[in-house]
Design a protein around this nucleic acid. Structure first.
Length: 590
RNA sequence: GCCUCGGUAGCUCAGUUGGAUAGAGCAACGGUUUUCUAAACCGUGGGUCAGGGGUUCGAAUCCCUUCCGGGGUACCA
């Protein structure tokens, strides 16, 4: 559409003898209720024309119609100049650009970006909140790849700490040697079970101590179980062989469980970092900060940074006893990651509860003069809430990832069987399809929402398979594939001679042509949501077209048929690759 | 208290650097299949864009302010 802007600039120059910036020419797609395809909003131009909006629009419209071949007509509504473009313009756009082999394929840009996501704790299974994180992280990675980046996906596993010891201790005390094999439980669920048991027993102890006269605070500190867990953490840090062996065994169960879930979700990683290897990092960075005068030491020996000048607070970076806090290790880990990969950008996919933490982390790294600090980005996303509030694993109000996936797949199975369209499929093909559709529904549901917005999930209302959903788009793809196969489609270049193109086809060409720009917009905003919504619009448009156009398969061969088949093929291609970026596979049939 | 992110139809969400009468889906109601997949299509009803003020030719969008909700807030991660 750039040629319209250029032409309009020229119109203003000739009509009103003023050279104007591109930004003065405000163009947008014409709304459905008006005639035309492109609209120039002329209000900004009236400043130069010194005429009414209507008159200005009419003058520019007349000029464009006379001087630009593609402009075949215009109409003016208030300050809006609606232009009608020639059919040949759209056919050329489609044949020369959209249909070209490299359309939507962005060449490497030579930049490397790291995406850290998932980052689970190894004391409990994944829940819906983690699912949002995983899908977002994976999808953003794919989005960046599609935009020419070299992407490194990493997972920083929180595999140590007091919460892990809680599960270990509870298992030791009440587990009777239970294993995933003996219990039939998935490893992460088994360990999670003991995490919950710990909490229950711990609460009992607190109640007991309170009855014995202690305050809530005292009781929480003095309960034997928490003391035992703390002791176990010390033993772990000291490298106690028995504790380490238990830790390795139970974490192994959890990893087996996570791997199953990751595989089902279709997410993957190029490298795993483990906090058990990184938790001591960062102390060098603290020394460096002290030497540079960025940090200061208090009388008790604790180390701080003063960020009040930046509108933040003073922040502790090292405890008085010399041990690390969360941000200490994150400082060290950030350096290690950069040393490992030397990336230009680094994205942390972490919930918005840590907004402040990352603001501080990045600011500190900047103040330390790290050259790579301004390439750091916190992709912050909103919590997944239930109708009655937040999910809490210790209170059992979580939506478990594995359960949810299983129920989505079960629903996909029910609906598919009901429709009975794949009765000739083999058992394996059916199962694969149920997975595809069930996960398609789940993934689309989570990804279509702007990441930073909180997301409400109501377990009582199942996720839809109709309307603005993943399966709707998948279905559109399957429909096209079926049509192409019946038409025995072969690619052949189209010509611009074909006339009698339908309005909906013009709309589709415009929608298809936007794809590369949509990829860029989504990547720039680190937001798969806009891509998800774009694909929905495209699918919706196709279904309208499909309904309005006379049956293509039965049409006799000719320009019209070839054009429409090409249109179908390209739509299927873009749906397929766009959905792939969302981590969703579009089936050939469903 | 302070910082921060949200508030758009009954519900779930779109809404581009400020542009036309604020759009979809679900739910409700009505219609479409001897035609390429009806997980589709077409139609009807449904709005104080949280409230107020301001900037502007023009505000859901920008600024100020109030209300409501989430998150954070100096030795948890």
């Amino acid at each position: 559409m750039n040629f319209i802007i250029t032409a309009a600039q020229k119109a203003v120059l000739e009509l009103y003898s003023t050279e104007v910036e591109e930004s003065v020419i405000n163009i947008q797609e014409t709304r459905k209720e008006f005639e035309g395809q492109v609209t120039i909003v002329v209000f900004p131009v009236t400043k130069f024309s010194k005429k009414s909006p209507e008159q200005t629009a009419n003058e520019i419209g007349a000029y464009l119609q006379d001087n630009v071949a593609e402009v075949t007509g215009f109409n003016v509504v208030k300050g809006f100049l609606n232009l009608s473009l020639a059919e040949s313009y759209f056919l050329n756009l489609f044949n020369k650009q959209v249909l070209s082999a490299d359309f939507g394929i962005i060449p490497p840009n030579g930049k490397k970006v790291m995406v850290e996501y998932s980052s689970p704790n190894t004391n409990k299974p994944l829940h819906l909140g983690h699912v949002r994180n995983n899908l977002l992280g994976y999808s953003v990675s794919e989005l960046l790849k599609a935009n020419g980046y070299d992407v490194v996906k990493v997972n920083l596993v929180n595999d140590r700490g007091i919460h892990i010891c809680k599960s270990m201790l509870a298992w030791q005390k009440w587990g009777n040697g239970e294993t995933p094999e003996s219990s039939g439980l998935k490893g992460d669920h088994l360990v999670g079970k003991y995490y919950v048991i710990f909490d229950k027993e711990y609460k009992k102890e607190i109640e007991g101590l309170k009855e014995a006269g202690q305050t809530e605070e005292e009781a929480k500190k003095n309960a034997p179980l928490i003391k035992a867990a703390q002791h176990m953490l010390q033993q772990w840090e000291a490298g106690d062989a028995e504790v380490i062996a238990l830790w390795e065994k139970m974490n192994g169960w959890v990893y087996d469980g996570f791997n199953v879930t990751y595989k089902t979700l279709g997410v993957d990683f190029d490298k795993f970092y483990y906090e058990s290897n990184t938790y001591l990092l960062g102390k060098d960075t603290v020394e460096e900060g002290l030497a540079k005068g960025v940090f200061f030491k208090k009388e008790d020996g604790s180390v701080w940074i003063d960020l009040t000048a930046d509108g933040l607070d003073q922040k502790l970076v090292l405890r008085a006893d010399g041990t690390s806090v969360y941000i200490t290790q994150d400082l060290g880990t950030a350096e290690m990651k950069y040393d490992d990969f030397g990336m230009d950008e680094s994205i942390y996919v972490v919930g918005n509860e840590q907004d402040y933490h990352f603001k501080v982390l990045f600011l500190i790294l900047e103040k330390l003069g790290k050259s790579w600090a301004n390439g750091l980005y916190h992709l912050s996303y909103g919590m997944v809430d239930l109708p009655n509030g937040k999910m809490k694993s210790r209170e059992g109000t979580v939506v478990d990832a594995d359960d949810l996936i299983a129920s989505m797949v079960a629903t996909a199975r029910e609906k598919t069987v009901e429709l009975g369209k794949i009765n000739d499929f083999s058992e394996a093909e059916r199962e694969a399809l149920y997975q595809n559709i069930g996960l398609g529904a789940l993934k689309y549901f989570l990804l279509k929402v702007e990441p930073k917005k909180r997301l409400l999930f109501n377990p009582a209302e199942s996720i839809d398979f109709q309307g603005h959903t993943g399966p709707f788009i998948q279905y559109t793809h399957a429909r096209i594939k079926s049509l192409l196969s019946k038409a025995e489609y072969h690619f052949a270049a189209g010509s611009a001679e074909f006339s009698g193109i339908m309005e909906v086809e013009l709309e589709m060409i415009q929608q298809l042509a936007k794809y590369p720009e949509e990829l860029a917009i989504a990547a720039k905003a680190y937001s798969p949501a806009s891509l998800a919504n774009y694909l929905y619009e495209l699918a919706k448009l196709f279904n309208k077209f499909y309904h309005e156009v006379p049956p293509i398969v039965k049409t006799e061969a000719g320009e019209a048929k070839q054009f429409r088949l090409n249109l179908c093929k390209k739509t299927a291609d873009i749906i397929y690759s766009g959905m792939k970026i969302l981590g969703i596979t579009s089936p050939e049939r469903m």
